[in-house]
Design a protein around this nucleic acid. Sequence first.
DNA 1: GCTTAGGATTGG
Length: 646
Amino acid sequence: MDGDDASVFVCPFAAPSRAPPAVRSEAKYTYTPLNALKPMTVVNVYGVVTFFKPPFPSKGSDYSSMMKITDQSDVKVCCNIFAKNLEDHPVIFKVGDIIRLHRFKTDLYKDSMMLITCRGWSAVTFDGIIDSSVVPRSTSKSFHFVESDKRKVQELRQWAADQSVFSSDPTVPLSSVQPCMYFNLTGQLLAKAVMDSSCILLKVWDGTKCQHPLLKVAVPTDSVEGESTVAKDRMNLTANVLVYDNHIEVARSLKPGMFLRIFNLHALSQRAPDEQSDQTEQLAFHLHGGTMYGRGLRNIPQDSQELQPLKRQLENHADLEDDDEVNDDTLLEMWYTPPESVDGEADVETSLTVRTCKHTLQRVTLAQVKRSTPPLVCHIRAQVKTYHPQQLYQCLKLFCSKCKTMREVPDDTTIAELFCESARGYQPCHEPWAATSSASLSKQGRNISMYISSDMVGDETQSQLIFVQGMTLNEVCMVSLDHKNLVPVRSDNGRMNLIDLTAPFLFCKDKRYYGCKECSLNTFENPVFTGVETWDEHTVAEALGVQLMEYRLLMEFKLEDHTDTLEALLWERNAERFFCVSAVGASAKQDVQDRILTIMDTLQPQGSDIEERPWLDLCLSVYAVQDNGRNQVCYHITDTEVKEVN
DNA sequence: GCTTAGGATTGG
């Protein structure tokens, strides 16, 4: 039984004996008021959450969570959830949330009606705030949600607002926490460390300053996962939360950068072990074992509305960076790749091109990246240890998006030889579709021919696509400056064909286009030249059966932060400026040089030594690839954002 | 393999 296909309905009021509607797509869910539940039936209900426990590991095989809900009938019903995975539990953030349960079994426990998950159950939750948008929170990808659900939610919100029971929420910012308080804390996890087998330390902040001195917990740096919090500690922004016993498993599932809410957290005033007895007491936070009072913790997804106020608060401290704490010996390793020396302005004007990533992703350490399961997109902050290739033009590659082959851009000598070779055994081409114009260069003993499609004669497109035969590379380059699309061809026993696809199949002004040897049909048998108004590399490639290759910029970087090192690729698509690079030999590769030098400048300003290497915020894609049957993980820099740190 | 938990605080 899969999700919303289920058709078990119990309708205590309306025609209980009748079968559910025959047409499933029109099947409407019937919701039983909480005062009308009968034991041992399967029902759908709506309710407002009056109490809940976030998921915790049960003694059986599942995670367990529970809630108490009520509705307009004012009856309260307890509800138990069992699910193998944490993520499958209903996404309840606070008392007052609205929840819709499908296919829950009713039962009696201690003379009270209760609900329990049964086969095919599902749950959808909504914020309980009146007039806020009705956004379903569901753990399953597909679920039934229609206009009547929206109404139902709004009715329950209205009803709940008139009851005073939901008004008190113990969620407070760190700045309001007083000693001895039990409260809910919503924040971002900065770092965590295993203290012992029954305790994990979570370093959490919510961007507010605690009024009382916060306890500093000493942990060996190698057991800390996440960023350094020294600067935030100093400002009394970091809550050290000790998580015990049954909550450890959930705490373990949290990664630094994630947002979380901790329920029933206990603020305890205590003296740091190494402090003098007359010192001020410090606030420690304990998430004690057990589930009393809904004690527990859960991750709040990045995009939750719940997080808006918190995120705004954190932005106020965007300047707070802790990277000045890095003094790891490994950073003293030599930067063995020297910066490219360049003529001109590039090294004078070290203006950093700032490319801002649009993602709002959590930042993770390289160690965490390495431990992650691809696919994943994340932010990192790292220094560049080395990069290559060192010859800048070698960064430019040809890439076939179809077969994913990547190859080098051939140098001009190679291309020139191919052109000479094809000109050597000149034979005219006889194509029924082509109009020919030939010239004989008697001094050189060479023949040159130009062909256009007969369809295009007298047409506006006729000057747009010209096939040339017998020209040298230099000649093609010269002619292409005045002609839009030039396709060098040779003759195979009178039939026109492309020159080896090692060479460019198309010259367009100062740009060259290459075809994939594997994926191109490379045939002139049935070229179609009609119906194209403007010829460009795409239409030419299509007409000739060529699979167009893209230019890519490919550089390999060794990145480093204070947790690990990582080899990542910087891979850029077809930027227009790259085309001219391959046009006229090495001297004309200035554009790509400029682009790469901009990156280089960014990575290592001239004259800087290792301590001054800038820290870079990079957006990293992590994905799995198959290489010779082996699984490999690829790290790919997708965007860079430069930040001056210190 | 078909249970688990089933509210109500003191403690690292």
